[in-house]
Design a protein around this nucleic acid. Structure first.
Lengths: 132, 132
DNA sequence: ATAAAACTTAGACCATAGTCTAAGACAAGT
DNA sequence: ACTTGTCTTAGACTATGGTCTAAGTTTTAT
């Protein structure tokens, strides 16, 4: 016996309704049910859920994740394709980090601008330079 | 005369349909129209569009962005609130960068795993350690 | 003058990712 | 026996962020 759905929720931080939704959408073809019809999550299943969470939270669509899971089910013939998928996802994440670092600068600039404006009591006292 | 909507698209990389959608949703109350009814984007408007893009792409909802824009319209009484908003958004971005760096490790681990598997021709040859 | 290009609006429609509802099964505790 | 808690399903519904359509205006080029 592995984990129930509430156990899986605790391990993955994915709500039960969302796990069921993923299952319905074909993202969890590997999850088995016990004699009562309840889902029975193995260690492997939890690892896959965590990986699904990683892919989703880095911008991959559920339909694409479903294709990846299917590749896993299809075995060694899809190894190269899965490698390519992760190499692509790596660049997606790296690009997002780079972009977020730029956004962080913008926001820090705004913080300085508003600190100056708050201190002066009015925006008019702060140079336009600080606004861009 | 400032920029037309197509000029604003070039400066901001936001599609015209999306700019109109933002306007309809109340995110662009500052944009004026010329005698033909066409939107006329000033430098300030473009700067605001870029800021809206920054906030949206770092996870802020349009309804929340609309509230921020309204604060800007309301003048100096909202300075503290706007400062707080950017300070909060800073932590949002920092948290996402940290999380993305963790996801990057997961993905890099997977790349190593699949490189080994591809070299061996089968997943079975690769240790489970590399899979988690 | 007429056709093409760029703009406008309201409102319908769509995609993604859930989220909720209703009806029911089963195990454990009182 | 019966209530409580946890689980199941199908299918309806919602939220967000667009995206498209239709009908119309004005400017510019041939």
């Amino acid at each position: 016996m592995g984990l129930s759905i509430s156990g899986a929720v605790k391990k993955t931080d994915i709500p039960a309704t969302t796990i069921r939704y993923y299952d319905k959408k074909g993202l969890l073809p590997f999850v088995r049910h016990d004699e009562n019809g309840h889902r029975d999550f193995t260690k492997h299943d939890i690892t896959m859920l965590q990986l699904i969470s990683c892919l989703k939270n880095t911008g991959m669509e559920l339909s694409h994740i479903r294709d990846f899971v299917q590749m896993c089910q299809d075995g060694d013939t899809t190894l190269e394709e899965r490698l390519a998928l992760f190499e692509h996802q790596k660049t997606v994440i790296e690009d997002r980090i780079k972009q977020d670092q730029k956004y962080l600068q913008t926001v820090e600039h705004k913080i300085n601008y508003y600190k100056a404006a708050c201190a002066a009591g009015t925006e008019d006292a702060v140079s336009n330079e600080d606004c861009e």
